[in-house]
């Protein structure tokens, strides 16, 4: 199976495998994460490549079961490239190296793009429409998200197939830049959204005398003049530190914030 073999996969096989990126997570588990699903998604194509050699088919499928965890929207890029390498008779070590080299960068770019970029963008627009009582809101959200991510999957499958094995080195350099750009946009949006969606308002008031008249001033208005959204920033930062430095789990954090919310509300500090 070493070299100079005629490729057996057609464009259609690559297209089908890209469509099969939708089954990637159907076997998601805490053992090998997407590993089983990954092997399952390329299995029909592998079957075609190794149709005369069942032992080889078993060997390659089993080697693809190992731990894998990347972005499901961009994974067709990896499967296409990997299949092109198998089909071209490249060594299994090289193929595996590429597969794992692409895992991190693609999940970084993909997550920035779909989870932190597209989804918040369209969900805020759709939520705005729904708040106005428009049925089009949720439908618009699903159609946009599905349409864009479907196009992305197919494009990635095509690019992976086109690039084959040739330009990996220059590509991974570009990957770093693309990832940086996507992450910068993502962080900007997330940071901005976090201060507007975390809600904490001081209920405290104090009485002051202006020209002999008593006036009640809400402490919150004073804060808003100097540093708007200061409390949400402090709370988000605090939670961030608990996650980063003290490795708090989500459960602990939810418990903390619910207890804190109830206590601060009962004590009349927050409203």
């Amino acid at each position: 199976m070493e070299s100079n073999q005629q490729p057996v996969l057609t464009k259609q096989d690559y297209f089908k495998t890209s469509l099969r990126s939708y089954v990637l997570q159907n076997g998601f588990n805490y053992g090998n994460y997407q590993g089983t699903g990954y092997a399952n998604s390329i299995f029909p194509a592998l079957k075609k490549i190794y149709k005369d050699d069942e032992e080889k088919l078993k060997e390659v499928t089993i080697s693809n079961l190992e731990f894998y965890n990347t972005n499901p929207q961009l994974v067709p890029f990896i499967t296409s490239m990997q299949l092109a390498m198998y089909d071209g008779g490249q060594s299994e070590d090289d193929t595996r190296a590429i597969k794992f080299a692409l895992m991190g960068p693609l999940s970084g770019i993909g997550d920035s793009l779909s989870q932190f970029g597209l989804a918040p963008l369209f969900s805020t627009i759709a939520a705005g429409m729904a708040l106005d009582g428009l049925i089009a809101g949720p439908i618009f959200f699903i159609l946009c998200m599905f349409g864009i991510t479907f196009g992305l999957r197919m494009l990635m499958g095509y690019l992976g197939y086109k690039l084959g094995t040739s330009v990996i080195d220059t590509l991974s350099e570009k990957m770093a830049s693309i990832s940086n750009i996507a992450t910068t946009i993502g962080v900007t949006v997330i940071s901005g959204l976090s201060v507007s969606f975390v809600k904490a308002n001081l209920a405290l008031e104090y009485v002051t005398k202006v020209e002999g008249k008593e006036q009640i001033v809400a402490l919150q208005t004073v804060f808003d003049k100097i540093a708007p959204n200061l409390l949400p920033v402090l709370i988000t930062s605090g939670v961030y530190v608990l996650i980063r430095k003290y490795k708090w789990s989500t459960y602990k954090l939810i418990a903390l914030l619910i207890v804190a919310g109830i206590l601060l509300s009962v004590l009349g500090i927050l409203k």
């Binding site: 932190f116 997330i190 976090s194 975390v198 988000t236 939670v239 961030y240 996650i243 914030l257």
Partner: peptide, 18 residues
């Protein structure tokens, strides 16, 4: 009130990754 604080966890988690 707690409902207003809870989104902080999600945002902090995303930021922790990125």
């Amino acid at each position: 009130v707690a409902g207003g604080l809870l989104p902080a966890i999600g945002f902090a988690m995303i930021l922790n990754v990125m």
